[in-house]
Design a protein around this nucleic acid. Structure first.
Ligand code: MN
Ligand code: MN
Ligand code: ZN
Ligand code: ZN
Lengths: 137, 137
DNA sequence: TCTGACTTTGCAACCCGGTTGCATCAACTT
DNA sequence: AAGTTGATGCAACCGGGTTGCAAAGTCAGA
């Protein structure tokens, strides 16, 4: 277990401190994305700034990606092992309006868009809102 | 001029107060979306809460729509006259990474997505990032 | 025209997510 | 052991967003 976490950190060139192991452990347990405030509640003895900087480090090193679903705080989810956070790694996200959980739809790539003349493409964010399978009646 | 603004307000069932006329006037002048903090700077004598509630009223009555481009504050842009803020009215937005302006690409509808089983669709937000025509070299 | 109900505005204060400065602590190098 | 670097903890701050409340404005009915 701990081995695998350390390995994941190592692959992304992140030094395996105790804090980082704990945070990564929590992240791997989630089936949906998690925000900094949620993380604060899970570790109620940990410092917000440390958690914040841990997420920053993870994001910079492409261990996690940030998701802006438009509903409150930014959320984070683990990247796939092969992810380089390039356009081809981008996928659709889904925000459930009932449970407020945000899902990575990693198998759904974002469709191509034809931009107006002289507009160049760098990146794209696509969030679908609706009701998730868990919340469906 | 003032006639047209009042007419727009009337069409959306918004009482034409002085404040609302001023804000709508500013909104019609913009070619890109504008945030509440930006609006505060334009009217530096106006109260933030009043501007805030004015935007809320406009949004509720579908005179403007909110754009969450993931870069700082929420921005707002005028809806088309025919807009009912339904899925068919949704369009792609474009955030320029150089000038930080957000464009409504009203002629580009958001492509359909096939969601996983039991996930239902309500809404979608799509923001493309890149460099706009004005900032292109 | 006066009155009372309702809406809008202005001001102040607050909330919360995000961010930073700084001192301390831990790990690693020489 | 001493020095260097990076990580952590704590406190404070910032900015966008939001609310409570009283004053001002609007307007219909008496
Ligand atoms: Mn994702
Ligand atoms: Mn738009
Ligand atoms: Zn759900
Ligand atoms: Zn631009």
């Amino acid at each position: 277990m701990k081995r695998e976490l350390d390995h994941k950190l190592h692959l992304r060139n992140i030094k395996p401190t105790a804090m980082r192991q704990l945070v990564l452990h929590v992240l791997t347990e989630q089936s949906t994305a998690i925000s900094l405030p949620e993380l604060e509640q899970i570790f109620d003895r940990a410092d917000k700034a440390t958690l914040y900087r841990t997420l920053k480090t993870f994001e910079k090193n492409k261990l996690i990606h940030r998701i802006n679903d438009g509903a409150g705080p930014v959320k984070y989810a683990l990247c796939q092992d092969t992810c380089k956070c390039q356009p081809e790694d981008l996928h659709v996200h889904f925000l459930c309006t009932k449970c407020n959980q945000t899902y990575c739809l990693t198998e759904i790539p974002i469709p191509d868009i034809t931009l107006p003349a002289k507009f160049s493409f760098e990146n794209v964010n696509m969030v679908v809102k609706g009701v998730c399978a868990n919340c469906a009646i």
